[in-house]
Design a binder for these strands. Sequence first.
DNA 1: TATGAAATGTAAATCGTTTGACTTTCCCGT
DNA 2: ACGGGAAAGTCAAACGATTTACATTTCATA
Lengths: 333, 333
Amino acid sequence: MATIHEIAKKVGVSSALVSRVLNDKPGVSPENRRKIREAIREARYVPNALARSLVRQSTQIIGVVMDDLCEKYFFELIRGLQDMGEEMGYNVVFCSGRSRPDIKYRYVDYFMEGRADGIVAFGSRLEDAPLVRHLVKRAPHCVLIEGDVPGESFNRVRVNNTGGAYRATRHLIARGYKRICHFTGDMNYNVAHERLEGFLAAMRDAGVPVEDGTVIQSDFEEALACERMTKLIGQGRVPDACFAGADKTAYGVMRALIASGLRVPDDVAVIGFDDEAPDSRDMLFPGLTTMRQPLYEMGQMGIKLLVRSLTTPDAAPQSVVFEPDFVMRESCI
Amino acid sequence: MATIHEIAKKVGVSSALVSRVLNDKPGVSPENRRKIREAIREARYVPNALARSLVRQSTQIIGVVMDDLCEKYFFELIRGLQDMGEEMGYNVVFCSGRSRPDIKYRYVDYFMEGRADGIVAFGSRLEDAPLVRHLVKRAPHCVLIEGDVPGESFNRVRVNNTGGAYRATRHLIARGYKRICHFTGDMNYNVAHERLEGFLAAMRDAGVPVEDGTVIQSDFEEALACERMTKLIGQGRVPDACFAGADKTAYGVMRALIASGLRVPDDVAVIGFDDEAPDSRDMLFPGLTTMRQPLYEMGQMGIKLLVRSLTTPDAAPQSVVFEPDFVMRESCI
DNA sequence: TATGAAATGTAAATCGTTTGACTTTCCCGT
DNA sequence: ACGGGAAAGTCAAACGATTTACATTTCATA
């Protein structure tokens, strides 16, 4: 690989001149500019970004550490990060921790070693807590999407899970449903706790007693929710309505209901959470009423907060909370 | 941010000593090693990876340029790249071109500027041709997954699409189906052409005439295939069997058939291509018989080829072709 | 008490850029 | 002919590490 000095020598000028041409700066005669361009082309010279970033003290890179890249749920978030990042003039690169804290740790450090100007991390797993603390305490510029570190102040964007769950539950109560149950998401995640909390608060505020078996632990996959709902049906304890901690969970519930010959929403109403883009073949199910998370906008906002921190380093950290939208479809009207 | 010199000054030694401690090298007295470690901890010093990579002339990074990160199809490939990359001691970072050649270009250059030791790129779109040529001609170390550049020799891994399509089609012919049609994938992609070619070859070799309307152009989404098949049904031109250029295409076909009251495979047999992980709710369809692409293994192999190129730079470029597996499920037996 | 090897330490070059300070060149107006 | 100033060009110091070659200390041994 050629260097700037070799180009300079070949043309017979100093390397400073070549640098000026490279960066489209003034102070080079048209004649020399032409000759230097020519030499660059023919030597297939590519400037070394490491050396450049080292002296410029800036990489124009935003590093994103995802919980898992292979998860449809994150698509809109990724898009939001990309679009806004590029709009702001940054390169956005992604790493995946594959839901393993140790790997996420590695990649957070990886970016902190000067390879990125700032970091966006996703951390909703409870076991991520030490990592997230590490991140917000040591990384000069970072934004956390979902997740929390009690006692620390930092840039974060999240969704009002508790409020969303509260509203969804209140909707069910207002529609006159009596036997309402909640299928939780994976309790290893923050959001599952927050949504459960919202559910319980709504029930309490409405004076509806929460009996045993009202809250059914499940996770973010369909299988477990389906199994648990099937069991419930077998025991003859079919509820009126069901608020699920995630869309996938809701699909599991619906699958169990439909398989047992029950109708949604006529026999049992179902509300989900997330508004994860359904495959087109989900049209075989009734459309899912759900609380939409504005993940695209959250990604955009994450970048905005990060860039603000980058450009005005003394700005106070900010916490942005998005309200989920109630999206009414067929599964609960 | 502290530097190695500040640590050295604080302890009262030279920076070379600190460097040795950082890299666990001998030549430091236990006493000094302890003091240096202590100073590093308390200053929260993190070595600068750019400076380090600059002098070491190596980043231990593999850059991956995907066609699109937000595409379920790529999940297994991503996992294969990650797992093998980390096993080989590299950090693997991902960029997404979002199916736009100009963005992919940017990210390829991005990695070529010394930010990665090698590049893995995915390029099956026809319009990627100039980009791919750019990549294999200028990047010292790269591997291409899918895609081709006639006349160039480079590291690549791909799947035998033509052969797979040939085998799938021959299977249909052997089962006695007479009116076989092919729904193509998106003809903007290499693979769609190769699979069509395999289909035509099998028909030709079996002496089955390919009449007008036998090949139906569609794409990699369900919607279009569904629409086209519905139209076919409306015209009373229902085939015996159908080979689809991708699983998603096949699902579109099946959806049209089932919606029209036809049974799969009794009325129409369907074979897909890819074996993309179906959502659990796809269980409502008959299981899809398909040609499985070993994407995970292809990702692993991509890394292996790249690392080989990195460690033995004079090795001849290699082209690895995977044979797809025939996976028989219910949609065609 | 030399002797020399092993252990420990330092200085300085290097990686490939950018950039501020400085010098040279050249042209213009008086 | 000369002073002044813009334009063009060069030099060398950064940036923050690693590493080679060399210097110093230690200490057991002859």
